[in-house]
Design a protein around this nucleic acid. Structure first.
Length: 464
RNA sequence: GGAGCCGUACCCAAGUGGCUAAGGGAGCGGACUGCAAAUCCGCGAUCCACCAGUUCGAUUCUGGUCGGCUCCUCCA
């Protein structure tokens, strides 16, 4: 069965046919490194990781590029917009470059802990300003730009196909809130900046043919994707929020610069919802009303006692194109579910010794995966088969470290725990149940599971 | 105002024009246990927000209503 994926451009599932097999080229919008990634951001990177693993599983050689945005985007269209990198720098008393480096490292620490593979290329925006200027020059030569006191603009009225990804009806667009200040120098509301000019307070600046300034919000992705993957490449991913503006503008500036199709397949991950709404980085540092720790970054999840891979497994509950509701209860459910997977026994595999049954089961799971990454169905099937070897085979896609965790030797029991077990055994021998129960409670408090079986008492760490 | 998504058991959710509506968690019953925990076995939506329509037949298609969400500002 061929791999099919949902293409936002056509709003249909399509069979994946790469430009130059066995190579599959993939570009994913990466983080803007001015703050920690929250678990909603991370959900999208988990989805993209599953995609690249699935591509490789089906025999492709993956070339995956993800940008690191280390130059801030403006927070609004107008003069008073703050650069996020600059705001963070002021907040933390650092330079923008220090901020970027710090949060880039934090980002990769998180993705590593989630078993998200590093893309083959992770270019930084600040290292590609020359390429961005090159694209703007081509756009200028092709007659798609104009210059105002604010910067160099892309003239969307010159692009007949502008908005095709989001199916925008430009005449019906308008700003939704009063506080959005529109730039008076723009010719059309949908025009966007390619290069900012005359921003004296801005710290990160570069020389350009149009004057000293800094690049616009979208040009870096066009520059870096095309540099590393070519004018046309296979798949471009990102969050659904990127469809109407960011990816729309990427397509416009890329295709008008090269006169080639930019991307063949567009894939978008849906949001993680918390309390019925989306998460935002700006609320990351806010305190909660109640006493419970606020779960918003991977680290807060870990601090609350959850395993990073339990979060990864939690993401597999819902299809990547569906919103997913986060709650501690759901995280607990995912943790219990994963624990069950890790408790699988290689020695009592219901499918071992029956190659026909194994092949049939494998086929069903594979069909689910190849049908636009039907990971929830795949996990459901895997759960009902309960086969260690089948889980392990698909762990190449799931990335849950199943073989390692199942084989992992239990951590050495600390002396303190061993002594408690010994004294509990004595109490049990003497049928001193009160003492026995009391010691058991102590062991539980220390994070151990206590089990009395026919072969004696066993303790096991509650950690996954 | 425009564009789009969603509403399936207590929770997270998959899915289909008609055969028993996945799976996980929680819960319940049983085995096990000194009692538990863990584990194993079993049970669980006569029903897929509501109302019409299309159809021999709809949870699945169409229209409407109600409710929720996202985007049209930076955002995964």
């Amino acid at each position: 069965m061929p791999l099919s994926i949902y293409n936002t451009m056509t709003r249909r599932k399509e069979e994946f046919v790469p430009l130059s097999p066995p190579l599959a080229t993939l570009y994913c919008c990466g983080p803007t490194v001015y703050n920690y990634a929250h678990i909603g951001n991370l959900r999208t990177y988990v989805f993209e990781d599953v995609l690249r693993r699935t591509l490789r599983f089906s025999g492709y050689e993956v070339r995956h590029v993800m940008n690191i945005t280390d130059v801030g985007h403006m927070t609004s269209d107008a003069d008073d917009g703050d650069d996020k990198m600059q705001t963070a720098a002021a907040r933390e008393n650092k330079t923008p470059w220090e901020i970027a480096l710090f949060y880039e490292a934090a980002f990769f620490k998180d993705t590593d802990r989630l078993n998200i593979e590093r893309p083959e290329v992770t270019p930084r925006a600040t290292g590609h300003v020359a390429e961005m200027i090159g694209i703007i020059k081509r756009l200028e030569e092709n007659g798609y730009t104009y210059v105002t006191s604010e910067g160099v603009y892309f003239d969307t009225s010159r692009d007949d196909e502008y908005g095709k990804l989001a199916r925008l009806q430009l005449d019906k667009q308008r700003t939704s809130r009063d506080e959005v200040v529109s730039d008076e120098t723009k010719r059309n509301p949908s025009d966007f900046v390619l290069w900012f000019l005359n921003k004296p307070s801005h710290i990160m600046k570069w020389e350009s043919p149009w004057g000293t300034g800094y690049p616009g919000w979208h040009i870096e992705c066009s520059a870096m994707s095309m540099k590393y993957l070519g004018d046309t490449f296979d798949i471009h991913c990102g969050g659904v929020d990127h469809i109407p503006v960011h990816h729309t503008n990427e397509i416009a500036q890329s295709e008008c610069a090269t006169h080639h199709p930019f991307v063949n397949y567009w894939m978008h991950g849906e949001f993680l919802l918390m309390n019925g709404g989306k998460l935002s980085k700006s609320k990351l540092t806010q305190q909660t009303d109640d006493q419970r720790p606020k779960i918003s970054t991977l680290q807060t999840l870990i601090d609350a006692g959850y395993d990073p891979l339990a979060y990864r497994y939690f993401c597999f509950q819902a299809h990547y194109r569906s919103e997913l509701n986060f709650s501690l209860e759901a995280m607990d459910a995912a943790t219990s579910g994963l624990r069950r997977v890790y408790s699988l026994s290689p020695n009592s595999d219901p499918l071992s010794g029956d190659p026909t049954a194994y092949a049939a089961a494998r086929e069903r799971v594979l069909n689910a995966v190849y049908d636009d990454l039907g990971i929830p169905q795949a996990v459901g099937l895997l759960n009902s088969y309960g086969s260690f070897s089948l889980w392990c085979e698909f762990d190449a896609i799931l990335g849950l470290d199943i073989a390692e965790r199942v084989a992992r030797q239990p951590d050495a029991i600390p002396e303190q725990v061993a002594q408690l077990v010994a004294s509990r055994n004595e109490a049990r021998k003497a049928k001193d149940w009160a003492k026995s129960d009391q010691i058991r409670n102590e062991l539980i408090a220390l994070g151990y599971e206590v089990g009395d079986g026919p072969t004696g008492t066993t303790v096991r760490s509650k950690a996954l």
